[in-house]
Write a protein that binds this DNA or RNA. Sequence first.
DNA 1: ATATATAACTTGTATTTACAAGTAAAATGC
DNA 2: GCATTTTACTTGTAAATACAAGTTATATAT
Lengths: 238, 238
Amino acid sequence: MAGSGSIPQYRKLYEVLRKHILEGVYREGDLLPSENELCHLYGMTRPTVRQSLSALANEGYIRKHQGKGSIVHSIPLEIGILSISGTTSAVGNRNLKTRIIVRPVIAVWPEEFMFPLSELERESGCIYMERLRLLDDGPVFYDISYITNINLPRITSRQFENKSLFGILRDNYHIEVKGGEQRIKAIPASQKICRLLDLRNNLPVLHLERKIETNNPDLFLYSSIFCNTDKYSIFGRF
Amino acid sequence: MAGSGSIPQYRKLYEVLRKHILEGVYREGDLLPSENELCHLYGMTRPTVRQSLSALANEGYIRKHQGKGSIVHSIPLEIGILSISGTTSAVGNRNLKTRIIVRPVIAVWPEEFMFPLSELERESGCIYMERLRLLDDGPVFYDISYITNINLPRITSRQFENKSLFGILRDNYHIEVKGGEQRIKAIPASQKICRLLDLRNNLPVLHLERKIETNNPDLFLYSSIFCNTDKYSIFGRF
DNA sequence: ATATATAACTTGTATTTACAAGTAAAATGC
DNA sequence: GCATTTTACTTGTAAATACAAGTTATATAT
């Protein structure tokens, strides 16, 4: 009954440890306090502590070793769910900017869409927008997004400049990302992509098509993302 | 004490359910038996059953919904840890073949390697091999592998043709894949890649550099993979 | 001194119990 | 017939407990 605000205890410890890892309180290779120590420190029982650590391990923040402990295994900067890592130098705290190419508008779904749509989605229509993500003022991602148009009042009049789409959805509409699927391809850049991503003609770009699930089972986010992987790579863990 | 063979109970249930999902006993969209039903069916308690279901959910086989149940969410054919999905038609049970380009040989690590190596790894040297993976007799992956040369007797004389590297390591050396990291890029295909993957010149290919961790903390698998994503896409969940 | 055994840690697995919270169908009231 | 309430069922969170198994440092014996 010590729980204040209905956020589960294991979630709180997860957030604390995650923050500490990202902020460098615990560094790569460091041993986290043992499960029993965490129990005493945060006033929980071991199953609860273990639930926090499992979540951290699943997302790649730590690695657990029986008999040893939990070792920090920090991960790189994330943009949405994409992680990027520089090929020339570490990515660190570079300034990530978002430039709006097409402001969010209510639209109908394209005839031939990249993922199959439910009847409800077809009826609801979508919010359409195009954004460019820049790292150190260089364009890296060109992102075309489609959001199912359900219960998102005034979204077309919101300010997206230099803000995270996920953040806006979470803060204003209580929409959390649950998971998703994606297809990845290497394709030649079209003229439009070349212009937007500041690329020489016909250079290859990475093309991702993703469907993102949320805590609203009827609401999905779709995006078609073109990445210039010349200087940066897409980074992933599994 | 009903445990036979030291394999944990939750692992057994995980294997059973996973097999049932892959074999179509439970199909996409189906509801799995409830946690309490599984408890009775397999003689376990709910935390144990939940551990199995968590593992399945983490790997994308099911999605859990509070108040509803666990819904099957089956995933496509996997090659190693890569999943592929066809753009023209479903991938199903297509024949996946492996052709050896360079038979496994003991070698020294390249001067400039794609991942940093530990001192122990440098000293140990590596097993080097090159393989081509074909789907429906068309080349799709060109795979250059480096395996840390620790405790792998007679590996260079093994038969790799049409066999999975992971399978050989698991069956003969008890090496299990634990996780890993990868970098993804889109690059223009070199002449050699074009020849191997049967591509027109300068067409883009997907390039993956991956480091795979195993249950032996000193043994890593590295691979540099070139994919023809013209007909197929790399598929992933998160 | 060196090798072996012990002890004191660590995480892994598993049971039992309890209640909270979300979902859906059945019962109820009108 | 239709809306509302209740009930039964689902998964989610959490505690207290116990022992297994892997790791590491310490103590012991040779």
